[in-house]
């Protein structure tokens, strides 16, 4: 029987029992490989062209990070040179962009709450389901980006068109998912609740809603990526600030030394938000 990590037969053995240390090491291999591959390409390209911007070197990246974290965002923002680190960060482009994008993101997320409640109602009240379900199913299939010109006309090119793009892009799926989750609650629970003198609203908000909340939060976690995608699309198409705005501007002159740190920062933010929601889910629902 093959037991060693070095035996290729183990790769196709479903019954393999890798050691904990082996799984730990294996889980980091791809990270290291990506970094190595990047470093390789970067050094190759820099050997050919020492000013290459497409695959910036570590030094360029550090400079890029420094200028995005400590340099003022606007060319005319004359922060006095003696400013503290904190003040520098507060005036930096990454700070301003994060605040701008973050506020859009959270407003959109707040607007998803009514969507979740609608999904709950559709799942539990037959008339709501009859009225909305078919339409939402249809609307869900519309590619929200194609509505952008209409959104510009209705909401202007400022904040609201971007926020609505995110909401319209994500809400239908979330509504349908919540509806589905709601309908998966065992019928016994609802019957039982009614035999315990619950009113309709009691059943919806005290019996069903707390039960579906963990799954709904998971569904929101899965929606983070589409939300970010729509935010980026909106910001790249028309805006005056934001993380994607900066990336779009930097693309004009191949500023990959800024773009790559920005991408990693966005990934980190999303990862953090996801972890926060997961943690929240565990703390809020000890009964899982």
């Amino acid at each position: 029987m093959a037991t060693s990590v070095l035996d290729p037969r183990n790769l196709v053995d479903i019954q393999a029992r890798p050691k904990r240390s082996a799984t730990q090491i294996l889980s980091w291999v791809l990270f290291l490989a990506s970094i190595a591959l990047y470093a390789h390409f970067s050094s190759v390209r820099h050997r050919e062209n020492s000013e290459d911007r497409i695959v910036p070197s570590a030094k360029q990246l550090v400079q890029g990070i420094q200028s995005s974290v400590f340099h003022p965002a606007e060319e005319d923002d004359d922060l006095d040179p003696g400013a503290t680190r904190w003040q520098q960060i507060r005036h930096s482009m990454i700070w301003k962009d994060t605040v701008a994008s973050g506020s859009r993101f959270f407003i959109a997320m707040a607007l998803l709450v009514p969507a979740i409640l609608l999904g709950l109602h559709m799942g539990i009240f037959p008339y709501f389901g009859a009225f909305f379900l078919r339409y939402v199913l249809f609307f869900d299939k519309i590619v929200a980006l194609s509505l952008l010109p209409i959104l510009f006309i209705v909401f202007g090119i400022d904040e609201w068109s971007k926020i609505m793009l995110m909401v319209i892009g994500v809400a239908p799926t979330l509504i349908l998912d919540t509806c589905q989750i709601t309908r998966a609650v065992p019928r016994e629970q609802i019957v039982k609740a009614f035999t315990l003198k619950c009113s309709n609203l009691d059943v919806a908000y005290r019996v069903v809603f707390p039960q579906i909340l963990p799954n709904v939060i998971n569904s929101v976690r899965l929606s983070l990526k589409p939300l970010a995608l729509f935010l980026f699309a909106g910001e790249m198409i028309a805006s005056t600030d934001g993380l994607a705005y900066r990336i779009a501007i930097m693309r004009r002159h191949m500023g990959m030394d800024i773009i790559i740190p920005y991408l990693l920062w966005v990934a980190l933010l999303l990862f953090g938000l996801d972890t926060l929601l997961r943690f929240l889910n565990r703390r809020l629902h000890p009964w899982l």
Partner: peptide, 17 residues
């Protein structure tokens, strides 16, 4: 369904939360 009857099903008889 109302509170005239008490009900004990085979499964899902309790609110899990």
């Amino acid at each position: 369904i109302d509170a005239r009857c008490g009900y004990v099903p085979q499964k899902y008889s309790l609110f899990p939360n």
